[in-house]
Nucleic acid binder design. Structure first.
Length: 577
RNA sequence: CGGGGCGUAGCUCAGAUGGUUAGAGCGCAUGCCUUGGGAGCAUGAGGUCCCCGGUUCAAGUCCGGGCGCCCCGACCA
């Protein structure tokens, strides 16, 4: 590619509306442009990177035995009604009405579509196992798109769906995908770790997210440095440091105390001059429309994902002030387990089991009660782990001290189960001629997010530093003076030869000063610059300069092509899976 | 949906208290000169000051309403 005839669009300054590094650099290096919030298009340089990532994913999926298909992105509402998700998905799903007034959905995910493909084409156990995939656009009307390409409304995803006759088969299909993912992320230069994830209302049995540790990540990961336990905070379990400490206090007398305008645990702690651990927080939730009281120790946080799973609820939200008043008989801030006005389901987190002489809301406005004791003053029928694990907690596996980090979720693999094959009635005949539902797994990789994650973890003050495997070009030739015939002659010769040997090379022959061109190439993250300058004329030598550490090799012109090829080959080895 | 910030040239921004023909840097075009890390000189093009309404002799500037963008939170198969 000759840059003089290409579309290079770089910016010298950070765009105003970008906050995170990857977003700034993707715009500045001319990889993408923003059409509007959450909608990004790829420019030529970005599209080259995109294609390289897609190709690596495709190669590894094929290697793992998955088969590529191309379903429709516009899907009929009927598919979604069948699976029961038409109503559940809510506003995130983009719906369009066609000219005949039929509703269509721009696929936000494709379980239904792939299940439909299998329903149409598979009828015997002999055709299984089967893993199908696509690399295509997804549409989700996100409440808040952000961080450029990281969370947007239209994005590219590789999604695969496996179909097996039994759980054992699913385990194998799942593991194949898991292996493929590890290879893919290695090859694109990402350090992505599988982390235990929430299986949630999907009803699956196992789920892992591939996380890239980064401060801009939206997910919180709980990590044990001793035994390498990694889990999304949504499902992480831990042991409290002081879980088993039974206080020796004798039970005091239950007593109401006036606490006007004291609401938060922090304020209450000051007011009573005690520790937050002496409080039992009582939070009222609405689970599928029914109020539930949840009790947890004052210094801890409720994990709503765990709670939702425990309750088996489809919808879980904090109760409104009106409902809280109705349930407790008091204004918000004074709920407690003793003397709730209405009989409702009460769930206790394990953390409240051993609190002696606790302080709780009195279910009367502006009043708390002290010396509250479980089993004497109130009973809890249901105990569960509904606490958010946090740094400093004890690892349930090895007793180590847990740490917290942020992660970007670049992939997600999931044992789905029978949800879709049952709801959409997919069956195959097994060996004995019985109709059985295949069991499913689903596996996703966010292509755009993967690109952003690479940039987020590999950049410097000059710009992007691409791994050679997904760089827009492997190397770019820079003729120091574009009007010098001799320099151009040498440059063009090397360029043509490299091209003929299938090197992904470009020549930056734009009528710009060397400084401008070098800086652009650094911004774009080109792994190797091939500089043809005075030395080429005087000493018959060209220079190859590395983007990552600035190291420069001087190479005689006659050996340039072979040497460049071998340097590039060597570089690829770093990313071999 | 709540809180905060912003909206003026392709980009990044300046335009107190309302007042002529709305500015800068970069970018862009043309010419000269240049090319070892964002050169110099000259000339030039480029504006719905987010939109609608109001106040006023006069609005980029003040008032009301709306729209859009960014960040935090809520939310997120």
């Amino acid at each position: 590619m000759r840059f003089s005839k290409y579309l290079i669009f770089t910016l010298r300054e950070d765009p105003k509306d970008a906050e995170v590094i990857s977003h700034k650099l993707m715009i500045r290096a001319g990889l993408v442009y923003k059409e509007e919030s959450g909608l990004y298009g790829y420019l030529p340089i970005g599209f080259r990177v995109y294609n390289k990532v897609v190709n690596i994913i495709r190669e590894e999926m094929n290697r793992a035995g998955a088969i590529e298909v191309l379903p429709t992105i516009l899907t009929p509402a009927s598919l979604w009604i069948e699976s029961g998700r038409y109503d559940i998905m809510g506003k995130e799903m983009i719906r369009i009405k066609d000219r005949k007034d039929n509703w269509l959905v721009l696929g936000p995910t494709h379980e239904e579509a792939f299940t439909d493909i299998v329903r149409r084409t598979v009828s015997s156990y002999k055709q299984l196992p089967l893993t199908l995939y696509q690399i295509a656009k997804k549409f989700r009307d996100e409440i808040r798109p952000r961080f450029g390409v990281m969370r947007c409304r239209e994005f590219t995803m590789k999604d695969a769906y496996s179909f097996d006759i039994d759980e054992k088969g699913l385990d194998e299909s799942y593991n194949k995908m898991r292996e493929a993912y590890i290879r893919i992320f290695k090859r694109v230069g990402l350090n992505a770790l599988p982390v235990e994830a929430d299986v949630g209302s999907m009803g699956g049995t196992r789920s892992e997210e591939f996380m890239v540790f980064s401060s801009v990540g939206e997910a919180t990961i709980i990590h044990c440095p001793t035994c390498n336990y990694y889990a999304n905070v949504e499902r992480a379990e831990s042991i409290l440091k002081d879980d088993d400490v039974v206080e020796n206090e004798t039970m005091g007398e239950l007593k109401e105390v006036d606490t006007p305008n004291v609401f938060t645990i922090e304020d209450l702690t000051k007011f009573f001059n005690t520790s937050p651990k002496k409080f039992i927080k009582t939070i009222i939730y609405m689970a599928d429309g029914k109020p539930v009281a949840v009790l947890i120790r004052g210094d801890l946080d409720i994990n709503e994902v765990k709670l939702k799973n425990y309750l088996g609820a489809a919808e879980l939200e904090l109760a409104t002030p009106e409902i809280i008043e109705e349930v407790t008989g008091a204004k918000v801030g004074f709920a407690g387990p003793v003397g709730l006005k209405k009989e409702i389901r009460v769930i206790g987190d394990f953390s409240i089991k051993n609190i002696k002489n606790a302080i709780t809301g009195a279910n009367k406005t502006d009043k708390h009660i002290i010396n509250v004791n479980i089993n004497r003053d109130f009973e809890v029928k249901e105990f569960a782990d509904i606490r958010t694990a946090k740094a400093g907690d004890i690892c349930k596996n090895c007793g180590g001290s847990l740490e917290e980090t942020k992660g970007i979720e670049v992939g997600h693999i999931f044992k789905l189960g029978y949800k879709y094959t049952e709801s959409m009635n997919v069956t195959v005949l097994d060996k004995s001629g019985n109709r059985i539902h295949p069991i499913m797994g689903c596996y996703g990789i966010g292509v755009d997010r993967t690109i952003a994650a690479v940039i987020e973890t590999s950049n410097d003050e000059k710009g992007i530093i691409w791994p050679i495997t997904i760089a827009p070009f492997e190397c770019v030739i820079v003729p120091i003076a574009t009007k010098d015939e001799k320099i151009m002659e040498i440059s063009n010769k090397i360029y043509e030869e490299l091209l003929s040997k299938n090197v992904d090379v470009a020549i930056d022959d734009r009528d710009e000063t060397v400084g401008v061109r070098m800086n652009d190439l650094d911004l774009m993250g080109i792994p190797f610059k091939i500089i043809v300058g005075k030395k080429a004329i005087n000493e018959n030598k060209i220079e190859v300069k590395r983007r990552d550490n600035g190291q420069t090799y001087e190479i005689p012109v006659s050996e340039a092509v072979d040497e460049i090829i071998s340097i590039i080959k060597e570089e690829y080895k770093k990313y071999e899976a």
